[in-house]
Design a binder for these strands. Structure first.
Length: 558
DNA sequence: CAGGCGTTGCTGGA
DNA sequence: TCCAGCAACGCCTG
């Protein structure tokens, strides 16, 4: 038995299973976990049941176009992730049909719709994957309350992650481990991850009558109102379990690559053949079972002589996911600076113009802008590119709040995952987990060392495609004649840099030092007043610097 | 309380 | 490709 404390679903189950004489109707509620393979909730739902209702609720809040958003998409998700989800649903529906079932799609507020279905279809067994995100925690409380009153059995297994975050937090004395090594120590052997996969399903109980509910098929993006999204280049990722398993097999088939995988050695500028498995989005939606992935990697490692190890290895990457899920689950207000006990309080700058320049790929630093274009078009960037642009926005150059960058990533990334995205922004902004704020990624030389010719920039920023490689990472230094010849005049065809990197970096370091000093002095109990006064101090200092500069070099000509 | 360590910094030299 | 030097953080361990 893995759990020290039996989770609530086990208690609920024991109340009802013994008293169920006749076979009830079951409902499998898909949220994440959009797959047939290794799906404990689906497996349990399909056993000892009369009819099985597979349900997915489309939340208009998440799916319907928001004309006011900064990019095509809904209030919360960019068009790439919406498409990926729709493709995953089509694939799930088609797999269910092969097994004699189908996916029932309903629209509305998920909790309301679900409870309505439970009533109308006389469901006595409700199965859904346990979810640690605050949104689902709140939703599931409502659903569980209703189910317990209505006498509905609930089965809600932890199957999205390799560990149950609650177990690890409990083992660690009630707090989530905050370093990777201590996480590994506390977590120990992933016994559940090594346990047998869910039984292979070759047939499912049929779907009963769907009275009094408006069932629809999986909508297309056009049907949702996304008809006029122009695409010169769109994401290369197709959603769904079938695609996930195909890509997994491709990655795994190269045993040497799996065994020698070292994350920091990956090339962030590789885009024709990216340097990682590209499976993150499939893990996020549960098109791929993390347990199945884990076991496939283990299998390969057992067949080779030498292999890399966590944190840099491929298994190490899966464990990073566990690390952030645990930290996120164990930290109230994990997605905020205020009220987050592990987050350093830093008076970030409030500058919407700079934020927009970063978000819209107009910083004037080609490496940063190319990455932001890739994010927008593909819904994906290499991990190190994410580091580079996140550092630039926060503690490296612009000193803008990590929550603002987090929002942009959350919307645009296909693989955006609440725990991992917030965790990485905390990390990169030196707000938590990582504190060496002097280590700053250069927006010029970091990309250059992987891609000296600038092919990545040329691809995603075609305006710079003819810029000689000597200048492509800092085109503002190119003589005007070269800019003209390359058909890219800086300030006209492509923006001037929004900051001087050297100056901005020095200023960021100084501010980080002062902010850290304040956190230390106040024993991390920083009040709003303390923040305001430090922010004022920063503003005054930068005013002084600006006026000094103006006095030093009066430059009438541009 | 000191010393070692930490997914993934940069530059310059061998 | 690797290394030292840079300047130096918090967390963990003994």
């Amino acid at each position: 038995m893995r759990c020290v404390n039996p989770p609530s679903y086990l208690l609920l189950r024991s109340c009802y299973t013994t008293s169920m004489a006749s076979q009830p109707n079951s409902l499998i509620w898909f949220r994440k976990g959009l797959r047939i393979h290794d799906n404990p909730a689906l497996e349990y739902a399909s056993k000892q049941t009369n009819y099985l209702y597979p349900l997915f609720v489309i939340d208009p809040h998440y799916m319907e176009p928001d004309p006011n958003a900064f990019s095509p998409g809904s209030k919360r998700a960019g068009i790439n992730r919406i498409r990926f989800l729709l493709e995953s649903l089509v694939d799930l529906d088609s797999s269910l049909k092969k097994l004699g079932s189908r996916l029932l799609i309903l629209k509305g507020e998920p909790g309301e719709v679900l409870i309505h279905c439970l009533k109308e279809w006389n469901i006595k067994k409700l199965c859904f994957e346990y979810d640690t995100e605050p949104y689902y925690q709140a939703l599931d409380v409502r659903v569980k309350e209703y189910a317990s009153v209505a006498g509905i059995e609930i089965f809600s297994p932890v199957s999205h992650t390799l560990f149950n975050p609650a177990d690890i937090i409990q083992k660690n004395g009630g707090r989530a481990p905050l370093s990777y090594q201590s996480f590994l120590k506390v977590a120990g052997q992933p016994t559940w991850a090594l346990s047998p996969l869910s039984t292979y399903i070759d047939v499912l109980p049929s779907v009963g009558k769907t009275v009094n509910c408006e069932i629809c098929t999986v909508p297309t993006a056009t049907e949702l109102g996304y008809d006029n999204c122009t695409e010169e280049e769109s994401t290369p990722f197709r959603g769904g379990e079938t695609e996930a398993l195909k890509m997994l097999n491709e990655s795994i088939s190269n045993k040497e690559w799996v065994a020698q995988f070292e994350k920091p050695k990956g090339d962030p500028s590789a885009f024709l053949k990216p340097a990682t498995t590209m499976l993150s989005a499939y893990l996020k939606f549960g098109c791929l079972s993390s347990r199945y992935f884990y076991q496939r990697i283990k299998e390969v490692l057992s067949e080779v002589k030498t292999h890399t190890a966590p944190p840099v290895s491929l298994l190490g990457q899966l464990l990073w996911r566990e690390f952030f899920y645990t930290a996120a689950f164990g930290t109230p207000n994990f997605d905020q600076m205020i009220g987050n006990g592990i987050c350093k309080k830093i008076p970030w700058k409030d500058d919407d113009e700079l934020l927009a320049a970063w978000r819209d790929a107009k910083t004037g630093f080609p490496w940063i802008d190319a990455a932001m274009v890739q994010l927008r078009k593909w819904g994906w960037m290499h991990h190190l590119a994410r580091h580079s642009v996140a550092c630039f926005l926060t503690r490296g150059d612009l000193f803008i709040h990590w929550e603002k960058g987090r929002d942009v990533f959350e919307r645009l990334l296909i693989d955006s995952d609440w725990a991992i995205n917030n965790g990485n922004w905390l990390w990169l902004s030196c707000s938590s987990f990582f504190y060496q704020y002097n280590r700053i990624y250069s927006p010029i030389s970091f990309g250059k060392k992987y891609d000296p010719n600038g092919n990545y920039i040329r691809h995603f920023l075609p305006v710079l495609k003819d810029m000689p490689k000597e200048y492509i990472y800092e085109p503002w230094t190119a003589p005007l004649s070269i800019q003209t010849k390359a058909k890219c005049v800086i300030g006209e065809d492509y923006p001037k840099p929004v900051v001087c990197h050297e100056t901005a970096m020095a200023e960021c370091r100084r501010r980080m030092g002062e902010a850290y000093e304040m956190n230390k002095r106040l024993n991390n109990l920083v009040s709003e007043k303390d923040m305001t006064s430090l922010r004022r101090k920063f503003e005054c200092q930068s005013q002084v610097v600006k006026s000094k500069k103006q006095k030093q070099k009066p430059k009438p000509d541009a």
